Structure formats: structure tokens, C-alpha cells
Amino acid sequence: MDVDANAVGAPAKRAMTVIRVCLGVVIAGLVISGVTAFPLREELTLGSELLRSIGAASWLPGLAGWVDRVADALAATGEQYPFLAYGTDWLAFAHLLIAVAFVGPFRDPVRNIWVTQWGLIACAGIVPLALIAGTVRGLPLGWQLIDISFGLLAAIPLTIALVLTRRLERQRLPVISGVHEVSGSET
């Protein structure tokens, strides 16, 4: 297929840049949440100590109390049942694998549009999961809302990426190795 050099143009290049920035934000968020899920016990202990050292119990008693409770639970289970942390290790690993899935649309958003759509479905699924499982497991509503916010925040760059990807798709431009290139024929 012959493609006019002007067909790729600045708008398509800008769209690719914005798509990649949006997907990069999602990938970074997943990697950070994955990596930080490995040392939960240490993080919650540190968070509890930090909240106590700044006197947060007096102005955020619910938060400080909840963090203390979770830190104590992780310490107790870590001492008596260390194998339970293996479940959060798998959670962390899953976050890292999900991040890798977004490399496909980062390289070629049109061909891998389904990953972006799947990401938005996952973001929507966070809401009922947090509300139902959070309530069943006795999590405070505020904590459930924090969990929901991750899905809502990730949906913003994913929606932008999806809209721009659909624009690129309508232009039917060839994408070679994830970068728009103009050649005399389709390879």
C-alpha cells in the first residue's frame, strides 16, 4: 500500500507521543504498585512509625489506627504464618505482568487496541471488587475509596490513549516496529 509522506504528518506523530505518555503512566503505576507489594510488612511498619512520629493519630485517628492495625496483622501473620505473604508476592508479580501487557499498545497501539480496552474493563472492575470484597473483608470505606481511585485514575490515560488510537486506526496508517514510517510499499 502506498502512503503519502504527508499522510503520517505531525498530528499522527503527536497522537503517538500522547498515547505513549499515557500508556507509560499506566505502566509506571503498575510497576510501582507491583514492586511495592513485595515488602508490605516493612512498608506498613514504616508507615505506622511515620504516622506516630508526626502525631497523625491526633488529627487523622482513623487512618493512623487502620495503618497500625494492618501493620500489627502483617507482623503477627509474618511471624506465625510467613507463607501467607506468598499470596501478595503473586499479587505483585501479577501487577508486573499486567504492566508488560501494555508494552504491546505502547509499541503499536492500533494493532493492540484490545489491550487498552481490556485495561479500561479492568479499571471498571475495580469498583465492584473494592466495594464488595472490601466490605466482606471489613475494610473501612475510606480505604475502599482509595482502591477505587486507582482504577479511576488509570482510566483517564487509558481513555485518552483509546480515543487517539481509534483516530489513528481510522487513518489506516501502517505501523512498522511501533513507529510510523513512510515507505513506498507496505512490508
Rank of each mutant, 00 (worst) to 15 (best):
L91H: 11
R52A: 15
W59C: 00
L153C: 10
V136Q: 10
T77I: 14
G138A: 05
E49P: 01
W118F: 15
I32G: 02
A15V: 03
S185C: 06
N112V: 11
E181S: 14
V21M: 07
G87W: 14
W90I: 15
K13T: 13
R170P: 00
R167Q: 14
A5C: 03
M16P: 01
P61N: 00
V31E: 03
G142D: 01
L40C: 01
A56T: 08
P128G: 04
A12R: 06
I98K: 03
I121H: 00
D147I: 13
L97G: 13
L51K: 00
V67K: 07
A161W: 00
A92I: 08
L164I: 02
H95V: 05
I121A: 13
C123L: 02
T88N: 15
T17M: 10
L158H: 01
A71C: 01
A37C: 12
D89V: 04
L120W: 04
G9P: 08
P128S: 06
I121N: 00
T116H: 04
M1Y: 10
G138L: 03
P61S: 05
V31L: 13
V31T: 01
L162D: 07
R137A: 15
I19R: 01
A37K: 06
F106T: 11
A122F: 10
R14S: 14
A161K: 02
V35G: 02
T159D: 00
V115K: 02
D72F: 08
S185Y: 11
P82S: 07
R137N: 15
V26T: 09
E42I: 07
V179Q: 12
M16D: 06
S48I: 04
T187F: 10
I156P: 01
W118M: 15
R14G: 08
L158M: 05
G134H: 03
G47Y: 08
T77H: 11
L129R: 10
W114S: 13
V67M: 07
L23N: 04
R52E: 15
V182L: 00
Q171T: 11
A12G: 11
Q80M: 08
V136L: 14
V175Y: 02
I98C: 10
V35F: 09
V35N: 04
V175T: 10
E49K: 14
K13I: 13
E79Q: 14
T36N: 09
H180V: 11
D89C: 03
A92T: 09
P39W: 02
S177T: 09
V8P: 00
G9F: 07
L60N: 06
K13D: 13
I121D: 01
